[in-house]
Write a protein that binds this DNA or RNA. Structure first.
Length: 707
RNA sequence: AGCGGGAUGGGAUAGCCAGGAGAUUCCGGCGGGCUCAUAACCCGCAGACCGGUGGUUCAAAUCCACCUCCCGCUACCA
């Protein structure tokens, strides 16, 4: 809103959402880290003191469960992934000032300090909830430690979601016939006391925060609906061993919810960065605490803003709620500064379809590197492919097209032809000064770079150097120095002098997006230092007088390579898809709607089990849509012996006006349920996604039993 | 259904918040040029009634209202 323009004289901290230590990295993950790295580098480039930090998210139930399945210690399990990420990021030139993990002591201590601060502030309340309990171990069973029957569809389900049946999220206490994953014994429900952060206390604060925070539209607008209604208290504890202990010291086995200690890693990593380099280089407290100290009070605008560091979070758009609602409240409650900006990036699609690891529709980080491509090419592609908050499509085709067209043909070619010409004819930079025309062009480019940083416009930051090279190509072509060397040597020297300056400006401006390539170009210009440390002014300062012949900065991506990679991806997706789809009649039924058919259940049931289903012939008497629901219809079904009110999700295919009079099959001994405030007493049978109603062929009397 | 985000030449994208010269860039198509340069580069042409309908305004891709269609989050198919 009214934040001071960047760069400010206060330290900035740039963070990226923590990778969860539970799986391999793919291009979708990479996007955020590359965006963050580019932005942090760009901030430094305009003179903002910046720490770029992140860490692995080690806690939470999935890590605990997966570790238990492999019979390893969760810490060891998570550390393995952590180390892989830590080593992988630099391979993409994503260089954090500190990359830690949430199980480090600094984070654990800091997290507990946050919680104590909330306790002191009266922001924590206790409440009782039902949790599943293993009677043999005498231990509670959070989330995925329980399995049982889904109360909704009756399928086998895990404690937190009905993963094989109806896909619903399940709240603690909902799953039926609970069973312990650890011992296989039946579990029972016990009442347990848990801690809650009183978000409602921060309602007013959050509303002012959301008006003030900068960043992408989705991050600023989407939270409004959540903070305008009554804010629900956030359950911040779990019955587990794996996590950060709840710091009350009374011997209870509670750890903090993973979303408590995870974002605090942003602070912890910054702190560890300071511990490594010293407060003279970077003072984490100046960034995170108003005036360098934690403090309480309600008016950020008046008291705090001038003393706050520039905290900028880059996240995926799926975790906006955590960063724009929970996190600011957590910081506020502990007397810390609030984020200046939250940038929510879009997703990465593969060949136009959503990336899916389960279907193996993904391009893995490792795979990209193994194909032999330079990381800077990916960085350019992914940051400039679309606006930050839009989705970006990744395809090898398009990748090759953009690398060949924009990097090889445009940027690379311009720098190469300029440097080569200069080296051959002048042994370096011709002795003359830059023309006004080119000086102006460079000035414009530098200005648009600065403006882009202030506007969090990652795309433009990544693009300016290529745009400037475009100017250069046109300029050199228009002036034809190769025809002037003999006839008008002074003019030729002038043109080449200008091109060398353009090249130098390109090196300076492309550094955030392609740091390694920029450095190489810098050295080809005869420089020996680091282009990163050169500063923006270096775009205008004269290059060294002599340098040798350059080498090509980028290489063409060959079409054979593209075809091979595309084919490899396609085969992999098809292979995985076939397994899922099984008998998909792709060739035949052109007219028929080909659904993704499930394979037939392999478990056979006995006749007795079938007899348990009391299904009757019925006729719909009344039908009316239920207000507020998309698919739901309230039905009155006459089954001879009885007349039932049933709620069914069939509005998609069936018009409610035509339903009365339709004969249907009703499962009469289905347990009662309430949907959208209406009781449903039975279940009408219907086929497929579209809910095509089952009916009878002839005229069996109403109430006839199906057998 | 609620809330967000979208819809721009054949494809992909920018511009929209801070309205104003018949709209950016890349790929593709057509024609020409050049040869210093990685068969690359440069120029010109064709191609968009900026999703639809209304409104505000001297002026709308840009602001407002309604609608259609996509995507995401949430609800949801007893």
């Amino acid at each position: 809103m009214s934040h001071e323009q960047l760069p400010t004289d206060r330290p900035a901290v740039v963070t990226v959402g923590l990778p969860y230590a539970n799986g391999d990295l793919h291009v979708g993950h990479l996007r955020g880290y590359v965006d963050g790295d580019l932005y942090a580098r760009a901030l430094r480039r305009i003179g903002q003191q910046t720490a770029f930090v992140c860490g692995s998210d080690m806690h939470g139930t999935p890590v605990a469960v997966n570790a238990a399945e492999r019979d390893v210690d969760p810490e060891a399990f998570a550390l393995e992934w952590h180390e892989q990420y830590r080593d992988r990021f630099p391979e993409f030139n994503v260089e954090f000032d500190y990359y830690g993990h949430t199980h480090e002591e600094t984070n654990i201590d800091l997290t507990q300090e946050f919680v104590r601060s909330w306790l002191d502030g009266g922001y924590i309340v206790e409440d009782e909830i039902e949790v599943a309990w293993d009677t043999e171990l005498d231990e509670p069973l959070p989330d995925r430690y329980v399995e049982g029957t889904c109360p909704y569809c009756g399928a086998e389900a895990r404690g937190d979601e009905c993963d094989e049946g109806c896909q619903r999220h399940l709240e603690p206490g909902e799953i039926e016939e609970p069973r312990s994953v650890r011992t296989g014994n039946p579990a029972e429900y016990r009442t347990r006391e848990h801690k809650f952060l009183r978000l409602s206390e921060f309602q007013e604060y959050l509303q002012s925060f959301i008006d003030r925070v900068e960043g992408t539209d989705n991050a600023r607008n989407q939270p409004r609906e959540w903070i305008e209604g009554e804010l629900q208290d956030l359950c911040i504890t779990r019955d587990m061993d794996w996590g950060v202990d709840y710091p009350n010291g009374d011997g209870e086995e509670l750890v903090l919810y993973v979303w408590v200690d995870a974002p605090i890693e942003y602070v912890a990593a910054t702190k560890q960065y300071t511990e490594r380099v010293g407060t003279d280089t970077y003072d984490w407290e100046a960034a995170w605490k108003p005036g360098g100290e934690s403090r309480h009070g309600m008016t950020f605008e008046e008291d705090w803003q001038a003393e706050s560091g520039e905290i900028i979070h880059i996240i995926g758009r799926d975790i906006i709620q955590h960063h724009c609602v929970f996190w600011p409240a957590m910081l506020r409650g502990a007397g810390y500064n609030e984020p200046r900006a939250v940038l929510a990036t879009g997703f990465v699609n593969i060949d136009g379809d959503a990336l899916s690891t389960s279907r193996n529709r993904a391009v893995w980080a490792r795979e990209y590197l193994d194909a032999g491509f330079h990381p800077d090419l990916f960085r350019y592609y992914i940051t400039t492919g679309s606006g930050l908050s839009n989705d970006v499509d990744f395809s090898w085709d398009r990748f090759a097209e953009r690398v060949n067209g924009e990097l090889v043909g445009n940027l690379g070619n311009f720098c190469y032809r300029a440097l080569l010409f200069a080296a051959r004819n002048y042994d370096g930079t011709p002795e003359t000064t830059v023309s006004d025309e080119i000086h102006g062009q460079i000035e414009d480019a530098v200005e648009s770079f600065e403006t882009a940083v202030q506007a969090y416009d990652v795309r433009t930051i990544g693009q300016v150097a290529v745009d400037l090279a475009d100017v250069g190509n046109e300029y050199i072509q228009r002036n034809e120095p190769w025809n002037l060397v003999g006839s008008e040597p002074d003019r030729a020297a002038q043109v080449i002098r200008d091109c060398i300056q353009l090249t130098r400006a390109c090196a300076v401006l492309m550094q955030p997006v392609m740091p390694e390539k920029a450095q190489r170009l810098w050295e080809q210009l005869g420089e020996s230092g680091s282009v990163a440390e050169a500063g923006l002014d270096a775009a205008h300062s004269p290059p060294p007088e002599t340098f040798g012949e350059p080498t090509e900065l980028f290489e063409q991506v060959e079409s054979d390579t593209v075809e091979a990679l595309t084919e490899q991806l396609r085969e992999r997706v098809t292979a995985t898809g076939d397994e899922e789809r099984d008998a998909d009649s792709a060739e035949s039924d052109e007219e028929t709607v080909t659904a993704d058919l499930d394979p037939v259940e392999t478990d056979r049931i006995g006749f007795e089990q079938f007899q348990e289903l009391d299904m009757r012939v019925g006729e719909i008497r009344e039908a009316e849509p239920i207000e507020g629901a998309d698919d739901l219809v309230r039905l009155e079904v006459d089954i001879g012996v009885d007349r039932r009110q049933v709620v069914a999700g069939i509005k998609q295919l069936h018009d409610t006006d035509t339903l009365p009079g339709t004969r249907v099959v009703l499962l009469a001994n289905m347990e009662r349920a309430e949907l959208f405030g209406y009781e449903s007493d039975g279940m009408v049978l219907a086929a497929g996604e579209e809910a095509d109603l089952l009916t009878t062929h002839a005229d069996a009397p109403l109430g006839s039993r199906i057998r």
